[in-house]
Amino acid sequence: MGENVQTIPGGAQPHKDRTLNRQVRTLRVKMVLLGSSGVGKSSLAVRFAKNEFRDTSPTVGCAFLTQVVHVSDASLRFEIWDTAGQEKYHSVTPLYYRGAHAALLVYDISKRETFIRAQLWLKELEKHYIPGSTVIFLIGNKGDLAWDRQVSVQEGQNLAHEKGLSFIETSALSGDQVNELLLDVGKIQNILKVPLDGSRHQTEYLTVNRINAHFSLMYWISGVKK
C-alpha cells in the first residue's frame, strides 16, 4: 500500500490531529505523473511517497500511491497516479489525468526523444484541459545524469515559458530538487475549486490560501528531510 502515514477517514468530518490536538480538515490533491517509458515516473512517485529511491520494473497499467501530510489546521492527502509510459496503455491514461489538480509531465534530460514525447503529451493534455483545473508541471528528471545531458535547462525553460507551465529539473535518484518540486505543487491552491468526479471520498478539496499551502509543504518537506 502506498499509504504510509496515516489513513484519512472518508467523509468530511474533521478529526483530531494528535500532535496539535486541534480540529483539522482533510484536503485531497490529485496528482498524475505522465511521460515516456523509463523517464523515472515511478521512481519520482516512490520518492514522493516514501522518500526512498527504487529502480522499479516498468509500471504495468498504473500505480496508485498516497501520501498524507499534516499541517496546522489541515491534512493534505496527496493521491498520486503513476501511469505507465508504454504506448499500449495510452488509451487508458485519460482516466487518470481527468480531474487532476496537478499533472507532472516528466522527461529524461539524457534522452532527447523523451523531451519530444513530452511535447506530444502536452498536446494530448491540452485537448482535455479545463482552464483553471489542472496545473501542469514540466519536469526534467535524472538530473544526476547531467554529464550525459541531451536536453539543456534552457530548452526546458523555454518550452515551459511558451506553454505557461512550471518547470523544474529533479533527480529521483539523489532526491535533488524533488522537495522543491513539491513546494511548487503547493501553488495548486489556485485551481482547487473544481471538485473531483466519481470519487468515493467526500473530503473537502484544497481551498486553503496560498500561504497555508506553502507552509504545509514546507512542513512536510522539513519532515521528509529528517
Partner: peptide, 13 residues
C-alpha cells in the same frame, strides 16, 4: 515478473 505492484496499488487492463 513485476516489482511495480509493490510500490502502490496497481490498476491495469
Amino acid at each position: 515478473s513485476s516489482s511495480s505492484f509493490r510500490e502502490g496499488e496497481g490498476w491495469t487492463p
